[in-house]
């Protein structure tokens, strides 16, 4: 991708806007279309676009695979944790009315937190899926390159059906 200067420049301009838009969709979901899931996929798509243009190794320096794996769990724990807090506050599981003295304010707070949990999990699961697919290179499998010849096709089939090491 080093020679695609148009792609690189346009991506550099667009990626901050995409990430900002994801945050807007995340926190404006109470008032307009959107919410955690939509924000998560937009944020994930922004990170994946960066990886496509600037390479997997570059993005892994900033968003490390272990961070991605931890964050996919953190979002789910945040969601489930809000339910546990509402249990401790005397309500039913995931009954946000008990989160605050004012039930409506409690609902606002609960929805904000669980939408954040949804967004975090969705965004980082998407990125971890991309890491898994993009990191699974043919070189690691020792697959012969796809030249179109019958002999290499057979070799490719043999290697690809084998259990990945």
């Amino acid at each position: 991708m080093e020679h695609h200067i148009v792609l690189r420049v346009v991506a550099k301009l667009l990626i901050p806007v995409i990430l900002l838009f994801a945050l807007y969709v995340q926190f404006h979901g109470d008032y307009g279309p959107g919410g955690g899931f939509q924000a998560g996929v937009i944020f994930g798509a922004g990170l994946i676009l960066y990886a496509l243009i600037f390479g997997l190794q570059t993005i892994k320096k900033v968003v490390t695979p272990s961070f991605v794996h931890y964050m996919s769990g953190v979002g789910l724990l945040l969601y489930a944790g809000v339910g546990v807090i509402s249990l401790f506050k005397g309500g039913n599981y995931l009954d946000y009315s008990f989160l605050s003295a004012d039930p409506v304010h409690g609902q606002h707070l609960g929805i904000l937190l669980i939408e954040l949990g949804v967004g975090i999990t969705v965004a980082f699961v998407m990125v971890s899926l991309f890491y898994a697919f993009a990191g699974y290179r043919q070189a690691d499998l020792k697959v012969p390159p796809d030249t179109g010849h019958e002999a290499t096709e057979k070799a490719r089939d043999a290697v690809l059906e084998r259990e990945p090491q």
Binding site: G29, D30, Y31, G32, P33, G35, G36, V104, Q107, H108, G110, I111, I114, E115
Partner: peptide, 12 residues
């Protein structure tokens, strides 16, 4: 719930 977007209040 006090939220204008009904979709969000139903989902969340």
């Amino acid at each position: 719930i006090g939220i204008p977007n009904v979709v969000t209040s139903v989902l969340a």
